[in-house]
Design a protein around this nucleic acid. Sequence first.
DNA 1: GTCTATAGATCGATAGAC
DNA 2: GTCTATCGATCTATAGAC
Lengths: 188, 188
Amino acid sequence: MRRPLTERHEVLPALAEVFREHGFEGASLTRIGQATGLGKGSLYHFFPGGKTEMAAAVLAEIDAWFEAHVFAPLCGVQDPERAVGAMLESIGRYFHSGRRVCLVGLFALGDARGTFARPVRTYFRRWVDALASALVRGGLAPASAADLAEDAVMTIQGAIVLTRALEDPRVFERAGSRVRERLRLKRR
Amino acid sequence: MRRPLTERHEVLPALAEVFREHGFEGASLTRIGQATGLGKGSLYHFFPGGKTEMAAAVLAEIDAWFEAHVFAPLCGVQDPERAVGAMLESIGRYFHSGRRVCLVGLFALGDARGTFARPVRTYFRRWVDALASALVRGGLAPASAADLAEDAVMTIQGAIVLTRALEDPRVFERAGSRVRERLRLKRR
DNA sequence: GTCTATAGATCGATAGAC
DNA sequence: GTCTATCGATCTATAGAC
């Protein structure tokens, strides 16, 4: 019952980066092995379900991170306007100003689409709902809040696509400014 | 010098659909063969460069389609407001209200990223510029037009991501309404 | 031009030594 | 737990018959 030298949890960040970089199909076990420093034997020891279980674990970790650092704060008791600002700052850092892909968005677009449809749907629904709840507590009508939240999340996803396409992080920064302005504007 | 029974051009739509459905890495020659009804021999006859050349040809065809049906009309002499409306209608049909992936956006996110960076960048830059030019002719200042055009294109890309994630085409339709409203609102 | 057969590499996954 | 060796399947690409 001793603590193992390497825990499953510890390899998840490297694992996530491989999936982000190469997609599900492109993330070969060889590449995963190089990125994590683990042989196939060890990988299958931690993830008996193989690559699918690895990707599922990564998605779960991402979801947990967003739940703790983005979704929950949005639903928290503190000033909603502050919470929205904090969200934009958090995700700006998380996505490296759009240089880093959103793995959930990538999976939504087609890479291993069917397999992870449910966690993908849950993640985005939760994001939109959490943001909408903050807007409602900020004084917005539920219908407008839902509309505005949906718009904000899709703008962020689109900003990642366009930032990578144009290879210009300023695209992401400008998107952040627009979203911030829109979320503030409507409340007055 | 007789006309061949099958022309390279004729298999491009089926080819494009395979890449959209499975991404670059996931589009195996077996699947491509099934979708096009061509054996590997024939495929390599039309595309000596293999899968990379197939994807490049598909991207070129997509670019040509958008140039003819979206970009050029935006830069045309007709009423800019009408042109913007026509763009939204065109892309709504093209992307099947967000159920169909934008292959260029998918490639931008990571699937075969390095290989097609240039056509991807060109496509999106052209799209933003064409839309901005229409807005300028509609009476907007160049700076605002560029900002608004960038926002519109990224919203559409994000709408595709979110529509597929939530499996709800109404997400895309709502995005179209918002973009239409934003592009109209600012001009007055 | 189109096919089948197949090469050669790499894939995901497993087995078993240590 | 971690490794190496290796399996069978699948991959891209080629060769050659027709």
